[in-house]
Design a protein around this nucleic acid. Structure first.
Lengths: 346, 346
DNA sequence: CTGAAAGCGCTTACAG
DNA sequence: CTGAAAGCGCTTACAG
């Protein structure tokens, strides 16, 4: 592969001159003839920079890693979008990975934590991450921005307004007239905070929040959540689910159990995603500013890297927003409450 | 950050000795005392290798990139799994990206194509990729394994058995007694080949295949597919959809239109994914060996890199498999055909 | 058994 | 206006 050395030989100049043309640095006032000769030579050999050499010399790779739990979670789509755009604008490349790959001893983890190829890590996890891995992360100089609040005060974290999300979801149901509203979530901080938001909204309305049902995050967790609610006696008329895929699972379980949604049970899922529009009944969700969060994540990485002041914590603006679809309705509104929920043969 | 030089100073040895201990190379018979001193020093400073330096010196990064179209497509989950495991076993790290990031001029693309940080690329795309980007790819020395067959004979590609997938899906419907079966797909090779499989199965059964309805890949495409079928006159009794998310969208559109699935219309989606179990009615799918395909992809990357003989083309084993769920039934079986499709209030 | 040296391909002061 | 040189942190023949 062509290197700057070859180009220099071809153009009859020094490597420094080639590097200068390539980067637009120093040697700024080079004779036009020289510059042209160099540019021709560059084009001729089809020069491709060696990123490893550049990273070694510059002491920065120009790449940030983004690691999430459950890559396939549709809630990340917008987050990735925001991160990618903000990173591109700064001249950084983004690489993605799944947190299940971050096992102690994996080459993936080694690459993340090693110096030279990754400048910083943006890490989003639903539940608490493996402590051993977290210890590795903390021990290394690579800056890490956690996307979701953490217990440890030394961690840099940002997050959407989970409290408001739980509150807004609950308020939507209260406005529809519901008074018996349950909350189904998973382990870990974000879900717990959304649960607090739920409890706050309930109390503010003079209602009694019930204890959160803690199951998990996938579709199966939604099904287990419904099971738990049913085994607790009288089913509430509405439920806030902390996670969108879990809400979809709960919807399916309700259909299987012959529980009409929204006639008998209204369901709100936190996080908006395409899938909410595709299931039947379609799922009412709380849209969170994931794209803005992605941008913020990159800004914080940048601040951490440059020593500029950070702006960590909760991203409160724009606020969570209700996307009302067909899984919510006033209590007791029966099967025909919504034109789109029935699927009778014509 | 600690370098080998510092460790060497600390242990009173040469850098070569430190490198040897770190890598288990040369200097194999080092005195135990020396080795211990070095190991202590390594532990003491918390040494982390500099991957950029190593990559530059070794002339290989130990990292492969995997780029897909629509990262959020659940069909990739198993593919990533296979790739990751096979890569780890070879000591490689894997980084992921979305094809929408591969725009000409993006830093992401530059990083992929640059030397030094990525040894090879595994690229999976549903439709044909931007020709400009493909030209870039072909011009660079970085080996590329395409996951899906391509027109250009110079490309290295592997794929699942799309022909068999289309065939198996169609045969499942034929076995149920359907004779009027449509095919809905997207642009590009994989969908076209699945359509061929459909047509083959139809003809083998003495039936007349209809022209493929070409819409696209997301849920909306499924809805548009149904619209197209309805506008073509009498709706067939069954449909093979080339893509799982598109099939889910078609299911939703059928529900909205009051078309009973599977009573009036049976639906099979190609590619299995968790979502198929979660929608109602649950979706019958064709499971393809995506994990094995991931492993194969890494094997081919390895072969390309080492100059070993490749094993490209269609991965026929294990063959596609029908996962029968509730979206398929004999024609005209009515609303109560399946115990899980009704969602009446109890 | 161990160290000195070269060199991977860059960038960047520095000297002229 | 341009080039020679140092050095980023490694690995790997090579010499002793």
């Amino acid at each position: 592969m062509a290197t700057q050395k070859e180009i220099a030989r071809l153009a009859g100049v020094s490597v420094s001159a080639v590097s200068a043309v390539l980067n637009g640095t120093t040697h700024t006032r080079m004779s036009d003839a020289t510059r042209e000769r160099i540019e021709e030579a560059i084009a001729e050999v089809g020069y491709v920079p060696n990123d490893a050499a550049r990273a070694l010399r510059r002491q920065q790779a120009g790449t940030i890693a983004v690691v999430v739990e459950k890559l396939e979670n549709p809630a990340y789509k917008e987050l990735f979008h925001g991160i990618y755009e903000a990173a591109e604008a700064r001249g950084w490349a983004v690489v993605l990975g799944d947190i299940v790959w971050m096992r102690s001893g994996s080459h993936f983890l080694a690459r993340l934590l090693g110096r030279g190829s990754i400048d910083a890590i943006v890490l989003r996890q639903d539940r608490l991450i493996d402590e051993e891995v977290l210890a590795h992360l903390r021990a290394r100089p690579t800056p890490v921005v956690l996307v979701e609040r953490q217990a440890d005060p030394h961690d840099s974290w940002i997050s959407v307004d989970d409290l408001a999300a739980g509150r807004v979801a609950t308020e939507h149901l209260i406005e529809l007239g519901h008074t018996e509203i349950a909350f189904v979530g998973g382990e870990g901080q974000p879900s717990a905070v959304r649960g607090e938001g739920y409890a706050t909204a309930m109390r503010d309305a003079g209602l009694v929040p019930s204890a959160p049902v803690v199951t998990g995050f996938g579709p199966e967790s939604g099904a287990r959540g419904l099971d738990a609610l049913r085994s607790q006696g009288e089913l509430p008329t509405a439920v806030v689910v902390a996670n969108v895929m879990s809400a979809v699972g709960l919807l399916a379980a309700a259909a299987d159990a012959g529980i009409d949604v929204p006639g008998r049970l209204s369901v709100v899922g936190i996080h908006d995603a395409d899938i909410a529009d595709v299931v039947r009944p379609s799922l009412t969700t709380i849209r969170l500013p994931m794209r803005a969060l992605g941008v913020r994540a990159v800004e914080q990485v940048s601040a951490l890297l440059s020593g500029a002041p950070t702006e960590l914590g909760v991203l409160a603006d724009p606020p969570p927003e209700v996307i009302a679809r067909n899984s919510t309705a006033p209590p007791g509104s029966g099967t025909s409450s919504s034109p789109r929920t029935s699927s009778v043969v014509s």
